[in-house]
């Protein structure tokens, strides 16, 4: 099992408020790592340190190091644009751009310089197939993406991420706006994607974490309380706080 991401003493501050207190965490290649914890515990903030998206919010400061394939993404030489190409992200609410299905997927490859129509066509098809959406939309890929259902939109967003060929995919509560059927399709998809990608998923839903992930980290008040194999964490938690949370005593 190869370490894909090595996080060392990661701290995040919003102005005077410290949102993360020295997170140390190794994330493994071709595994699904789930981050759980109550609202406001810092799990989404941590997720957004991995593609440096926290920087969009004014007054945010990040300390510590995160090594992606042994390169520190917080060093000055790192090109944030190239980093975000390698580390894709799926957000809580599917946000399709107001353009066609095809254009949504081709957007990423186009901004990264691919102009050849045939190549774009094949990327679009491959990405939609990989996101389990091709069969449902192949007859209307030039129609507006806004016409898709919520679950389809979320898979479209995943296809859009896959189209730029990332290595790591971050998912921030990707199923929280979906119905149960769409959710199970999404979970199935996550299981397939991990063969090729390293996935980090934030979720509110502990059953979901148990179903989809290999490793689970439990966050509370900006600290990583416990991090281990998903099975161990849920069956045999070492920390009293973890146990209280997963047995539903707070949250």
């Amino acid at each position: 099992m190869k370490t894909k991401l090595e996080c060392k003493e990661v701290k995040v501050f919003y102005k005077d408020f410290q949102a993360l207190h020295g997170i140390d965490m190794d994330i493994f290649e071709n595994r699904v790592t789930a981050l759980i914890g109550p609202s406001g515990c810092g799990k989404s903030t941590f997720l957004r340190t991995i593609n440096r998206l926290n920087e969009l919010i004014e007054g945010t400061r990040t300390e510590g190091e995160i090594y992606l394939d042994e390169k520190n993404i917080y060093s000055n030489e790192i090109d944030v644009v190239a980093l975000r190409k390698k580390v894709g992200m799926v957000f809580q609410k599917p946000s399709v751009f107001p353009m066609s299905i095809y254009e949504n997927i081709a957007y990423g490859p186009k901004i990264h310089g691919i102009k050849n129509k045939g190549k774009l066509d094949s990327i679009v098809e491959k990405s939609l197939v990989a996101a389990n959406l091709w069969q449902e939309v192949k007859d209307r890929i030039h129609k507006p993406a806004a016409g898709l259902s919520g679950g389809q939109q979320q898979r479209l967003v995943i296809a859009r991420v896959l189209a730029v060929e990332p290595e790591v995919i971050l998912m921030d509560e990707p199923a929280s706006a979906l119905d149960p059927i769409s959710t199970s399709k999404l979970e199935e998809l996550i299981g397939e994607l991990k063969k090729q990608y390293t996935i980090v998923i934030v979720t509110h839903n502990m059953q979901q974490a148990a179903r989809v992930s290999d490793f689970t980290g439990f966050f509370l008040n900006g600290f990583l309380i416990e991090y281990s194999k998903t099975n161990d964490l849920f069956v045999n938690p070492h920390d009293k706080k973890t146990e209280d949370y997963i047995t539903g005593r707070f949250g």
Binding site: N51, L53, L56, V81, A82, L83, R84, K85, G88, M89, F91, S95, F97, Y107, G108, I111, H112, V157, R160, V161, V164
Partner: peptide, 9 residues
Amino acid sequence: ENSLALGAT
């Protein structure tokens, strides 16, 4: 956010 996360400037 989505566009930036895809590596767009």
